[in-house]
Each structure stands twice: as structure tokens, then as C-alpha cells.
Amino acid sequence: MSAPLFLKRLAGAAAVSLAFAAQAAAADLTLLNVSYDPTREFYTEFNKAFAADWAKSHAGDTLTVRQSHGGSGKQARSVIDGLEADVVTLALAYDIDEISDRGLIAPDWQKRLPDNASPYTSTIVFLVRKGNPKGIKDWDDLAKSGIKVVTPNPKTSGGARWNFLAAWGYALKKNGGDEAKAKEFVKAIYKNAPVLDTGARGSTVTFVERGIGDVLIAWENEAYLAVNELGPDKFDIVTPSISILAEPPVAVVDKVVDKRGTRALAEAYLKYLYTPAGQELSAKHYYRPRNEAIAAKYKDKFADVQLFTIDQAFGGWRKAQKTFFADGGVFDQIYSN
């Protein structure tokens, strides 16, 4: 009895002293950004820029922004299970919805920041071998027999779900909204997939390093990174006629920031994503900026492609998740016969 009481007092004393420290002019601050795989290069640079900006208005503070990366779903689960993320920056809104459903994030999170709480967007493109030997130009070519398609498993990779939905949305548009035809089409594409890696980066390695497949379905930013990092002379990027507007969302984890007293910092961090400086950085890392002036500046960097949103085509992530990726959903049906 007495020992726990003592510990509790000790903890109390520590908390009080921390509170004092926080009130003092200079503070020792940490912020944990739990993100998904393809954002690591972007956030490494963004964190430095943000820390420099923060230092301007909060002289003397030492700010450490910590990063955690992994599959979007796994990261969401870690936050649900107690990983103390101040902010989450994940691949799809569904994963943040799941965190929100557990009461960690307010239900209206997607309305709290501009543009559906997605400060940058991307789309789904194709990476092909140099010179495009198989002549891949659009989604139709992926469904042809004899073409090998590399894409991750939508069950384990959030990014891969965008790939799936992009193909589906294209097929719907082409066939005047015929779902049965869309299913046949997407099934033909997945029939051409010899490997379903568990993550997007795994698929890139399979395509680039192992030499498997004729085309890799990838996020635009991932495709550019792969070309730059792994061989500009070995690959070409092909942009399809129609694709999906991938909106990776961000949110402050209310329960954590209120407990840790980091709300102001966390909100400033996310808002900084929308500033010209933040938008410049996202463009640098091949994410499409939302800011129109910056987007115009980098117009040449991103191919012109007709984009549809998940809300338009599928009525939002929750619905899409349930229809396509839940147990027994369309993806399972594709593989069940």
C-alpha cells in the first residue's frame, strides 16, 4: 500500500515539475508523427523545416520531431493500441476513421483542416521498364494476357487499396458504370499479378531489384522516388488517362495531445503542411501540392491526368472499405474462384 502511494506522489511531483518546465520560456518538446511508409523522405526534410520555423517564434525551445513509419493499417493499429502519436499522417482516411472510432480523434477530424485534411495528394501511375517494351499506355494494357503486373496486397497495404480503386474507377467510367464489367476487368489485372507483396515498398523492390513484372502500379511520388533512387536509366513512368486522386490525410490525435499538452505544437505542425514552405517541400518529394500557386509552379512536374475522388466514385472510404476490402468483399471474391 505504502509503496504505490509513494510512487504516485513521486509521479505527481514529477508531473508538477514538468508543468513548471512547460510554463517556462524554453521547453524541451517532442512530437511523434506516426506515418506510413512512402512519406519518410518527405517528413525527414519537413521536420527540419518545421523545427526551424518553430524556433523563430519560440526561441530557446528544443524541439525533437520523432518519426515512425510502417504500413498504414499497422500504424493505425499501433496508435489504437497505445502508441502515443501526437499526429497521424496516414495513407487513407479509413485508417484515421478507425482511430477516431476508438475515441482517440474527434469524429469531425476531416473537417478540421482544409481540403479533406489532405495537405498534399498523389495519384496512381505505372512504372515500366525503360523504353516501355510492352507498350503499356493505359489501364486496358494491364488486363491483357501476357502482361505481368506488380502491385502490393490491398489487404495489408493501404496504398494498394488506392491502386485497386483507381483500376476499378477507370473500368466503371469506361463501361458506363457497369459493376460486373469492372469486376471482370480488375480480376483480369490481378490475375496478371505474380506477387502480392505486403507493402508498397516491397512491391517496388520486387519490380526493380528482382526484375519481376512488366509494370508496377504505384503512387506517383513512389514512382518518381524509385526512378531517382534506383535507376533513372532503367525505368519510365506512364500516366494513365484516368486515375484516382489519392488523398493521404493528416490529423491531430486529440486524446494524446491533451494528455501530453502538445495540442498547440501538433496543430502548428499540421498547419505548416499547408503553408507555402510545406507545400514546396511536398512538391519536391513528388506529392501534388494543394496550394494553387505552388501547384502552378510545379505544373510540369506532374502529368495532366483526369482525376476522380473516392467520394465521387465510391461514396467515401468507409463504404469502399466495406464493399471491396472487408472479409468476403470484392477483393476476396476475385480470388475465391
Binding site: L32, V34, R66, Q67, S68, H69, Q75, S78, L83
Partner: peptide, 15 residues
Amino acid sequence: EFGAVSVVSGHVRGL
């Protein structure tokens, strides 16, 4: 050990 630790680590860099 990889698998088990990966589940409980949280993957925070440097931590």
C-alpha cells in the same frame, strides 16, 4: 528477433 518485436515496438526512429 524481428516479428514479435516489430508488433510491440511502434517503430519510433532513434527510440
